[in-house]
Amino acid sequence: MTDDRAQVQNFFSARAAEWDSRFPDDGPAYAAAVHELGLRPGDAVLDAGCGTGRALPALRIAVGSGGTVLGADLTPAMLEAALRAGREASGALLLADAARLPLRAGALDAVFAAGLISHLAHPEQGLSELARVVRPGGRLALFHPLGRAALAARHGRVLSDDDLRSEPRLTPLLAESGWRLDSYADEDSRFLALAVRTG
Rank of each mutant, 00 (worst) to 15 (best):
T68D: 05
T2R: 07
D47V: 07
R180F: 07
A149E: 15
L83C: 11
P172W: 02
E167S: 09
T171K: 09
D97A: 02
R15N: 01
A98E: 01
G66P: 00
Q7S: 06
S65A: 15
G67M: 09
L56R: 11
V111T: 09
P168Y: 14
G91F: 15
P102G: 07
A105C: 06
F23H: 14
V111N: 06
R197D: 01
S166F: 03
R139Y: 09
C50N: 04
A48C: 05
P168C: 10
C50V: 08
L56G: 04
L74T: 01
A77D: 15
V69C: 04
L181K: 11
A141Y: 15
F112A: 01
G42R: 00
A14H: 00
E80Q: 14
S183D: 12
A58W: 15
W179P: 02
A32N: 08
D97N: 07
A55H: 14
H122A: 14
P41H: 09
G66R: 02
D25I: 00
L159Y: 07
D26P: 00
A31L: 04
V45Q: 01
L94I: 06
T2C: 01
G138S: 10
L37K: 02
A113R: 12
L94T: 00
R22Q: 13
T68H: 02
R157N: 08
T75W: 13
P145V: 09
P76C: 07
L93P: 03
R165N: 07
A185V: 07
Y184N: 05
A14C: 01
G91Q: 07
A193N: 12
S118W: 15
V158Q: 13
L101P: 01
L39E: 09
R165Q: 13
D73R: 09
G67I: 12
M1H: 05
L174I: 12
G156V: 01
A81E: 11
A175V: 10
P102E: 04
V34Y: 13
E18N: 02
L56C: 06
E88C: 04
G137W: 14
T198F: 13
E167H: 13
H35N: 01
A92R: 05
F191L: 14
L93E: 07
A113Q: 11
H35D: 13
R135W: 03
A82I: 11
L70V: 07
A62R: 10
D162C: 00
D97Y: 06
E167L: 13
L39D: 13
A81C: 00
